[in-house]
């Protein structure tokens, strides 16, 4: 997948189409215990007979990348920023179930700061959709021909005392890259991160989201919708805090540090 980044970087200057491709990328996969265990260990989930609720995202991520790196995609992959993510788990997914993953892009539209697009993923067991994801990306300064960008979900930012303080090492980006396949250079190495304008490597948004959800182990329903907004990049190493607040019908949570709020999320 590093290859995809290289190819995409090389093609960044080439002209691009002005609308989304109709492409639907699909794959069929049966995650192994080893793969799930690696993911669970890095994100802080227990290993059980069901997949962590955020795990299917890594099954869909490779397809998202293929779609976004293709020449038919209107935005250049480097520089796309993951700004929001919503996951709906319809039922617990058993370890060992064969899963069909479909990814397509939609809601490509102009945004005050550029252009925004959603990568929509659906994971099915048999013909039943068991998991859905919507990843919203922003391309700063890019241009979209039509439309107004889809509204980002509304998520509260709880401000209470910290439930946890996380000591995050400099290698976290590399460790999550190894289990997720997200090898965006901004997560891997301070030098490559600098090349993209970050003082140091930054944590993957989806790792932060996963680790926050893992903290609610034993207190979550079987089916849930988990919505997160990625606010400020989380530089590594760092020591952010997790804030959780039980609300009617679920949880609100936030990951914050002195730099500000990095993630706000809601579980329903």
């Amino acid at each position: 997948m590093i290859g995809l980044y290289a190819k995409a970087a090389a093609g960044a200057v080439l002209p691009r189409p002005s609308s989304l491709p109709d492409t639907v990328r699909t794959r069929t996969v049966r995650p192994t215990v080893g793969r799930v265990a690696d993911y669970a260990a890095v994100c802080g989930f227990p290993l059980s007979d069901v997949l962590p609720a955020t795990f299917p995202h890594v099954l869909a991520f490779g397809l998202q990348m293929e779609l976004m790196a293709a020449r038919s995609f209107p935005l250049a992959l480097p520089g796309l920023v993951h700004v929001a993510n919503a996951i709906t788990l319809h039922r617990a997914i058993g370890l060992g179930e064969e899963l069909d993953v479909r990814v397509h892009a939609e809601r490509f539209a102009a945004h005050a700061r550029g252009a925004q697009v959603d990568l929509v993923s659906a994971v099915s067991a048999g013909d039943t959709v068991v998991w859905e994801g919507r990843s919203t990306y922003l391309a700063r300064g890019a241009h979209a021909p039509t439309g107004v960008a889809g509204e980002l979900p509304e998520v509260a930012t709880p401000e209470g005392p910290a439930a946890a303080s996380w000591a995050l090492g400099a290698d976290l980006g590399r460790r999550y890259a190894a289990v997720s396949g997200d090898v965006n250079p901004i997560h891997l190495n301070p030098l490559t991160a600098k090349a993209f304008g970050f003082p140091r490597t930054i944590a993957h948004g989806m790792w932060t989201a996963a680790h926050a959800l893992a903290a609610l182990q034993g207190r979550l329903p079987e089916a849930l919708t988990y919505t997160v907004l990625f606010r400020k990049p989380l530089l590594l190493p760092s020591r952010p805090e997790l804030v959780t607040e039980r609300v009617d019908g679920g949880w609100d949570l936030a990951v914050r540090s002195r730099a500000g709020v990095h993630l706000a999320g809601s579980v329903r």
Partner: peptide
Amino acid sequence: YARASNLDMLTTTLD
């Protein structure tokens, strides 16, 4: 259980 930790197994058993 090669990939299961003590915590994984103890929590599951408790549940």
